[in-house]
Design a protein around this nucleic acid. Sequence first.
RNA 1: GCGACCGUAGCUCAAUUGGUUAGAGCGCCGGUUUGUGGUACCGGAGGUUGCGGGUUCGAGACCCGUCGGUCGCCCCA
Length: 435
Amino acid sequence: MKAQRAPKPAPVRGMQDFLGEQAERFDHVVGRFRDVARRFGFKPVMVPVVEATSVFARTLGETTDVVSKEMYTFPDRGGDSLTLRPEFTAGICRAYVSEGWQQFAPLKLVTHGPLFRYERPQKGRYRQFHQIDAEVLGAAEPQADVELLAFADLLLKELGVAGVTLQLNTLGDAETREAWRAALVAHFSAHRDVLSEESLRRLETNPLRILDSKEPGDRALVADAPVIDAFLTAEAGAFFEAVQKGVQASGVAFERAPRLVRGFDYYRHTAFEFVSDALGAQATVIGGGRYDGLIETMGGPHTPAVGWAGGIERLMMLCGEPEVAPIEIAIVPLTVSDEGIAMELAALLRADGLRVELGFSGSEKKRFEKAKKAGAWRLLNVGNTGSGWTELRLRNLVANEDAEPVRARILRSIKRAFHHSDDPETRMIKIFGPL
RNA sequence: GCGACCGUAGCUCAAUUGGUUAGAGCGCCGGUUUGUGGUACCGGAGGUUGCGGGUUCGAGACCCGUCGGUCGCCCCA
């Protein structure tokens, strides 16, 4: 009778495991991000995955979907309401306030990691997803916005992401936004009869979001809706002008998107999205903007700030296949008694910077097969001859123009090692080949 | 929260469209052959067809329910 197997565990809905190419792509996106960030002078920052619920509830806007129905919120054992972060900005601003980071302002920061939203999963959208994030805290100048846009643009180029366009807009300052908002409310209120149910609700809670509506009926109304430009104060207009000029000077292509708004309430002035047509329903790859008032509303000093976040899973789908450095040498002991010297060699070559795979499972044939599959350029066949000599056989298994320098390195490392060895046994080495 | 489609070996898929013992490739294990040691062949293990009901002489195929997945709506990176 067969033993009953426990039922197969499944991952939590909307959360995924990465292996192989997927994991390599993830690593690649983060790696390029870090590298480009350095070149722009951004420093790493780490903030907790969990915050007090109020950190997000207040800042994102009580009426936004994320806060009202998508947060992973739970009481901890002490009864405090905690929330798994649904985005980065609020947490970073909280840290800025609680840790007194204003002493370091202006701060150019990058971070990355998991975020959580209780949404229905689909292509490019998961309940645990990952973002790269860049923020400039304490800089009121439009140059900060420009630098952030140039950063994102260069990153996308280096990742080989094609078919992405930058959509740029301004949401103006508080005065602008108020005037525009009133005009929008007036416009949409006059056409209540044709507005979709969803948009009617938003008319009360968040009228800017009606501009995002995809309802065919709303689209026509949205097309006629007043554009923000007419309401821009002189200051807000000049700021946006400076951003556009700077972006152009930086060689970043963009489109003016007068109806682009942002999901969270804290945004002011610059708002932007890098949009792809290759992701199905999830078009935005990187999105962000300026949020000058946020830190103040959290009880901090008035601090102008800008930032963006990019979806790692989405970037993974768009970027070219990453190059993975192959194993340079596979060491294959022929018998159990050869494993000692094989391990010694492996330790040595690895310490010398070589990428080494040690094959010690399965039959001799299997070991060689695995060595080949690892992509090894060379194969060391380790074994003892009857005479007590240790026999090493260097073989070139893969045609590769880099093979010769690698062989030289291997031989150099081996020589050095055995020169320093006190064990006379291990000095008795014959190196065969290659070729 | 709503909608559409889909669930068959570890993975990717078949099964003449309701008919007998559910097949193949890859992967895994073993063997034979091969030796500039990425070859070829042979064999083996592995499935309560997501789960539960129903229709039928007969269900992997049809119906209902349920769970899961995918994609879309909503929203967002």
